[in-house]
């Protein structure tokens, strides 16, 4: 096995990878950046649930939409399938940074389990929780997480101390 092959296997993109081939089709949004929502199976009626958060660029006079700090300005269209209606409580969509340091409440899913929103975070998680009836909208979810997904950018992670950089001193780069 070559060094390159080792690297690819280590990265999980060798033979048998589930990365789908992308072809030119009618435009439906950049599928590459679509976020798959995966059930936690913690909530009755959600065992078979699947969902997608489609990502598109917020309206802008420019070819690509950025916030003032350079982050992408994104519109999200979230849809969940095969999710039973909640017996009690309300399904609520949230966005959070990967370290959960900031949470934004997008709002309750509609009757068709859909909601739209926007963000200017480059890396984030989408969370669908089941919030108790009558609960005041809080700053973060209190009920169980039903589905969650990660922005495509979440697949970008440190190489320090791994693969070709295993001999690099991780501490130099902030990792221990």
């Amino acid at each position: 096995m070559t060094f390159a092959t080792l690297l690819l296997v280590a990265a999980g993109i060798g033979p048998g990878s589930s990365v789908a081939e992308c072809t030119a089709v009618d435009p439906v949004g950049p599928a590459y950046y679509a976020i798959e929502l995966v059930t936690t199976r913690r909530v009755p009626g959600s065992y078979m649930a699947t969902g997608t958060a489609s990502v598109s660029y917020a309206a802008s006079p420019f070819g690509i939409s950025l916030a003032e700090d350079g982050s992408y300005a994104l519109d999200l269209s979230i849809g969940v399938e095969r999710l039973a209606a909640a017996r009690t409580g309300t399904y609520v969509a949230w966005l959070t940074r990967p370290d959960l340091s900031e949470v934004v409440r997008l709002g309750p899913l509609d009757a068709e389990h859909r909601i739209t929103g926007s963000t200017a975070w480059n890396k984030f998680l989408v969370v669908i929780s089941l919030e108790p009836d009558g609960a005041a909208p809080g700053e973060r979810w209190t009920g169980p997480i039903v589905l969650r997904g990660m922005s495509r950018s979440g697949k970008m992670h440190t190489m320090a101390g791994h693969g070709p950089f295993q001999s690099e001193p991780c501490a130099t780069f902030g990792y221990r």
């Binding site: 690819l8 990265a11 950018s153 970008m156």
Partner: peptide
């Protein structure tokens, strides 16, 4: 070869721009 290998890993995520 190292470029090829690193490129393949990079494409786990590529920025829109």
């Amino acid at each position: 070869q190292i470029t090829v290998a690193m490129m393949e890993m990079d494409t786990l995520y590529v920025s829109p721009a």
